[in-house]
Design a protein around this nucleic acid. Sequence first.
DNA 1: ATTTATACGCACCAAATGGAGAGTGTAGGA
DNA 2: TCCTACACTCTCCATTTGGTGCGTATAAAT
Lengths: 147, 147
Amino acid sequence: MRKASPDPQIEARRREPVPETVDPAIEALVHDVIGKVADKWTMLILEALHDHGTLRFTQLGKAVGRISQKMLTQTLRQMEKDGLVRRTVHPVIPPHVDYTLTPLGESLGAAFCGVWIWAETHHAEIQRARASFAEREAATSRLMASD
Amino acid sequence: MRKASPDPQIEARRREPVPETVDPAIEALVHDVIGKVADKWTMLILEALHDHGTLRFTQLGKAVGRISQKMLTQTLRQMEKDGLVRRTVHPVIPPHVDYTLTPLGESLGAAFCGVWIWAETHHAEIQRARASFAEREAATSRLMASD
DNA sequence: ATTTATACGCACCAAATGGAGAGTGTAGGA
DNA sequence: TCCTACACTCTCCATTTGGTGCGTATAAAT
């Protein structure tokens, strides 16, 4: 059942190089930014602040869901470094700290909006895709077993 | 210089609960999807396939940049499970495997488009923000030292 | 006098992530 | 006859991530 004869179409694509479209320097920068930003906690905090406007530390933690204080602090610091959030300390006792998005963070939140909407729209499809993948996998292993 | 008297505005926000806006069940689902998808390699592979259409394994690796074979395989498998990519095996020797986005993956790529554009537009701002954060940090530590 | 509330910092530990390098199977070319 | 191409898989190892629990300062409430 093995097809070992070379398909001419495939053969044609054999030594075809990777088509380049954009400047590699820009690519590197964008990849770096994506690397920093494409993090679960960053995205979730971004969403929470985008939705609620201004939140305090513990409120933010509850809004995000199951995040540890450590990760919350860590991610917020990184986001502050990147200029995405503004941290306001009110020198009262007990301490009171407010977090809010900067215009830059706000614009990123807006850019991510499409992704939230996608997730809300398509999560059912993903679940179906997973089920059918599991199905195919099971079928394959049945084939292997009867080999 | 410490202001310990309670600010009435802050006091008012003291026991204010986190404002809830959406159904927590939907939230949980979306967070789950985001958790799966908000991964550096997933986003980069998604971008590469969105740009180039169909790519083979090694081409894809080069298009993404510095990714190890292990991560490439692993991430592709996950994306296949989630129904984002279609994997086509041509039974020839040497092996030939094509990867392409499914309609679902294509729609996610479109949703992420806004984020690529954001990254391209704002990476200079991020770098400036980082510099000014470092500046402020240095100023703070100078203050601490002269304390 | 004791507790509570807040926003952390720190130390320790487990688990996940990710990279490097070697191995695999086989047809066709040097 | 040996080498190369391709798309992996596997093992070993280092780094990173993330959680838990404890400590802290201090005013107000009990």
